[in-house]
Design a protein around this nucleic acid. Structure first.
Length: 709
RNA sequence: GCGAGAGUGGCGGAAUUGGCAGACGCGCGAGACUUAGGAUCUCGUGGGCAACCGUGGGGGUUCAAAUCCCCCCUCUCGCACCA
């Protein structure tokens, strides 16, 4: 199971996750498999640091206390973990290997530093990776993400883009939608780069390079668009009357936060630079625009615009009165430019090229191939593959994480900390003010260290690593958790890896699950494991949900704040206005629909808590919490208990029927025979249900039938 | 818009390869036991008085369809100006 963040206490999502994992582990053990069922703690992260700022508790103390408490809770749940292999990522014994991997990746140019525009969460006061921005907001705190220019460390996950994509096809034990999400995130497109010469060449600047997957439409390119961030913009507009309008657009766009910039329905906007390029196929002079929808990070940051066959360009051309030139004809309904009310975005089919010189008459696929070859032989372009995936920015301007093992020396520049000096231990005594730069940059005593090359004082890197680095290889560490010689002992990893069954929430579909795949491949290439993929089978369990209640004046209400009943309607306990039963939503503190497992276990016991988590819904679906449903499970367990107490003495169960079972059975009364048949039918059913898609709910139903019978 | 998935009683959900639709649980109804019951146990519970009708809607294949095929509708989740 995915290891938890030690937030303080376990929640129902954990209970469900670990109940599922526990059944599978026990089942496999009982079937004779050698099962590794470990548990650990994803122990670095921001909440610990916030606790330090708010309550004055050191992150380390806060984290350790939480681990202690939650470990006890898990033990009380009766889960079958091998606690001898426990790992906590905040321990130097663990994170020194993060640093070691970092150094190895640095050696291989898989870790590098560059200045770039990064996602900045103003509330967490740190940088976020692209994967950690959801809908323009921070994945953790929901604050609107802004952009910032910073020097940052990156992992070169793009080096593995091709393999990460290709080997998804082999992950047949993963849910299709997770694979689809990763496929889309990696986003491979095959196309060509084409150089469009400037009509009036500029000193120091060559042609404008564009990327397209629709080179077949190139005769229809009637203008070009540049991303507002493009370095070409300023030289192109310098000294022209259009300069002011362009600068205004660029300034406005760059001020917008990510949520607004990436909104799909955002109005298309542009400004003409005053400059022209030459379409290398039609030789026409085409205007160069700056457009708000062109992404600087993708492709070359510049596009050829084909209004007749691209809806965005079509809208843009109409708004700014730019000519439309049809180059692909619809075989079933003849098109002509003045009568088009949308772009004709034809794919391969009966469509044929028109107005395209020697390429006219070709099908789309033929034209793509012929035009790509033409561009290559003429030397003004080449076939290219583009990925949506960006490199993984791992620098975080926070304290509670793995220090990045790098030094900045006046004389020698950027110098890695030697392997023998690892770990670079987090200094304990730092100020937690919540203001200004990261606590580490204020830790004066720690900040300076001798340069490994020239021995003069150098300054330590004060950024720490993204916590997703910690969780990218912990499953490998479980194989040899105590090793102080190596991050992973290859022989242990060879025995256990890959993980046969991994279980966790779907929210990590393109975060943890992509990073872990990347790390596994890097670690394989370092020779520590032979596994190509970390997780053979993936079970993404659904959320635990519950209904909510909201009063117009008093906000979200706890069940205890309600008066009335389901039948007569609920009222707010504060003001007596009637309250609708709200949506069924994921349990969350803010919605006040959380059920605390602690309370559940105290009332009904751990068995009931686990049983209900497994019975109420199949594991991959959302589980709606129901207090009466829990009671049903409790009743069932009590019934089993009473039944066994009652039957045991009467039937002598367990007294060794086995040696001559068949013979004995022939002689005993038929109810006993019936019972034995029922027992074996149930064993078969439960076995089948677990083997087939982990249908715990029906397996439990079979056990209930058995008891009823 | 693209991708993945779902639609079955009052509710959560079963139905494994096309073979008795609604297992199991909740809820509800009746009864037993009990000073009492919000404990426990027993029985009943898709709709309709009935003939019959019933798996989002409409067509089809088949001896037989929740399941397979075609068209449509609705919902959930993910991605979303990626050139």
């Amino acid at each position: 199971e995915m290891f938890p963040y030690p937030s303080g206490r376990i929640h129902m999502g954990h209970v469900r996750n670990y109940a599922i994992g526990d059944v599978i582990a026990r089942y496999k053990m009982m079937r004779g498999c050698n099962v590794l069922h470990p548990m650990g703690w994803d122990a670095f992260g921001l909440p610990a640091e916030n606790a330090a700022i708010d309550k004055g508790v050191h992150p380390q103390i806060w984290t350790q206390d939480n681990i202690l408490y939650m470990r006890n809770q898990l033990r009380r749940m009766g889960l079958s973990y091998d606690w001898d292999r426990e790992v906590a990522t905040c321990e130097p014994d663990y994170y020194r290997w993060n640093q070691w991997f970092f150094l190895k990746m640095y050696e291989r140019s898989l870790a590098y530093r560059k200045r770039s525009t990064v996602n900045w969460c103003p509330s967490c006061e740190t940088v976020l990776a692209n994967e950690q921005v959801e809908d323009g907001r921070c994945w953790r705190c929901d604050a609107l993400v802004t952009l910032k220019d910073l020097e940052q460390w990156f992992f070169k996950i793009t080096d593995y883009a091709e393999e990460l994509l290709a080997s998804l096809d082999g992950l047949t034990g993963w849910p299709e939608r997770v694979r689809a999400m990763q496929r889309h995130w990696i986003g491979k497109s095959e196309g060509v780069e084409v150089d469009f010469p400037l009509a009036e060449p500029l000193d120091g600047f060559g042609d404008i390079r564009i990327f397209t997957t629709r080179q077949d439409t190139i005769f229809g390119a009637t203008f070009m668009s540049l991303a507002p961030e493009s370095p070409l913009v300023e030289p192109l507009i310098a000294g022209r009357p259009q300069a002011a309008a362009v600068r205004d657009l660029v300034a406005r766009v760059s001020r917008q936060d990510r949520a607004i910039r990436t909104a799909a329905d955002r109005e298309k906007e542009g400004a003409f630079t005053g400059a022209y390029a030459i379409n290398p196929f039609t030789k026409a002079r085409i205007p160069i625009w700056v457009a708000n929808f062109v992404l600087y990070e993708y492709g070359t940051g510049a596009i050829m615009a084909v209004p007749a066959h691209d809806q965005r360009d079509f809208e843009f051309a109409h708004k700014y009165d730019i000519p439309v030139r049809l180059v692909i004809q619809n075989p079933t309904a003849t098109l002509s430019e003045p009568h088009m009310d949308a772009a004709y975005e034809a794919q391969e089919g009966g469509s044929r090229l028109v107005n395209s010189d020697q390429f006219s008459g070709l099908s789309i696929d033929e034209a793509k191939d012929r035009i790509a070859s033409y561009v290559e032989t003429q030397g003004f372009g080449r076939r290219t593959v583009n990925f949506r995936l960006r490199d993984w920015g791992i620098s975080r301007q926070r304290y509670w994480g793995t220090p990045i093992p790098m030094l900045y020396c006046q004389g020698c520049g950027t110098v890695p900390v030697p392997e023998t000096d690892l770990p670079v231990v987090l200094p304990k005594d730092v100020p937690f003010t919540g203001k200004g730069s990261s606590p580490l940059s204020q830790a004066e005593a720690w900040l300076t260290a001798p340069c490994p090359r020239c021995k003069k004082p150098a300054r330590r890197e004060t950024d720490t690593m993204d916590t997703f680095v910690d969780s990218s290889w912990y499953f490998l560490r479980y194989c040899s958790p105590k090793s102080d010689k190596q991050a992973i002992e290859p022989s242990a990893a060879a025995y256990w890896m890959p993980v046969d069954q991994y279980i966790g929430g779907i929210e990590h579909a393109v975060l943890h699950l992509l990073y872990a795949r990347f790390f596994t491949k890097v670690i394989r290439d370092l020779g520590l494991t032979t596994a190509d993929e970390p997780f053979l089978n993936l079970l993404t369990q659904g959320m635990v949900t519950k209904e909510t209640y909201r009063c117009a004046t008093h906000g979200w209400l706890l069940p205890g704040d309600l008066t009335g009943s389901e039948k007569d309607g609920w009222r707010c306990g504060h003001c007596q206005t009637s309250v609708e039963r709200g949506r069924v939503e994921k349990m969350s503190k803010s919605k006040k629909n959380v059920v605390d497992p602690e309370h559940l276990i105290a009332t009904y016991g751990a068995d009931t808590a686990r049983l209900f988590s497994l019975f109420a819904a199949p594991p991959d679906k959302d589980l709606e919490w129901s207090d009466t449903g829990v009671e049903g499970c409790s009743r069932f367990l009590n019934r089993v208990w009473r039944l066994i107490l009652d039957l045991q003495p009467r039937l002598g169960l367990g007294a060794g029927l086995e040696p001559k079972a068949a013979e004995v059975l022939r002689q005993v009364a038929s109810p006993v025979l019936e019972l034995r048949r029922l027992t074996h039918r149930t064993i078969k059913k439960v076995t089948d249900d677990i083997e087939r898609e982990f249908q715990f709910n029906t397996a439990i139903a079979a056990l209930m039938e058995c008891v009823n019978g």
